[in-house]
Amino acid sequence: MLLELKAITKSFKSGSHRVQAVDGISLSVDAGEFVAIQGPSGCGKSTLLLIVGGLLRPDAGQVLIEDTDPYVLSNDKRARFRSTHLGFVFQQFHLVPYLSVLDNVLAPALATRLPESRRRAEDLIEKFGLEQRLQHTPAELSTGEKQRVALARALFHSPKILLADEPTGNLDAENSEIVLNVLSEFAGNGGCVLMVSHDDQAVQSAQRVLGIDAGRLLPRSEKEALINS
């Protein structure tokens, strides 16, 4: 099992009361699987993704990535663990505004020294059809190009798991298709994709679609009712 979540819970304090963002979620994902988690805004999708990404410690439960719980590691070791095991793609792209396309893709190399890193970055950029934009900054790119750069950055260090938070949320149909094809290809090559989205079209590309509401994964019947509603 590449990724295993065991009874994960997480709540936040909101004013005088607590909000249960994730409520006892358990989930197993194998290598080569593309799993989509679908649900409305504020249902806990992004929180779950941050917990899986080793960025947000759960209140209870356990996250296991290749049998390692990242939360038992020190901060620095967890950062290193992220840089070797996980790739992130966000709806807002989160590119570094002052770095060129090439430097943005190379950014993970700041955390891990990879051999022939520049060559690999250039290959990825070429693969995403951005070779003419090598020295352009994010401000000079279209939204679709920005998301492709973000994908290239996420794939740069060959992670085991790709975590995608509404990766097509800001894209047109053409670019959404490109992004989803890349995610499918990544899973097809033995990687694991965990994508959260409320977009029906996007989740169609996943091999498994799970519903989430009020921090809980829904049974299949409830999920279908939720999607239909």
Partner: peptide, 16 residues
């Protein structure tokens, strides 16, 4: 702040 967040997410240590 966002840039720091993403750099931390991709694996930069706090000392970096």
């Amino acid at each position: 702040a966002t840039e720091i967040g993403i750099l931390r997410a991709i694996g930069l240590r706090s000392s970096q």
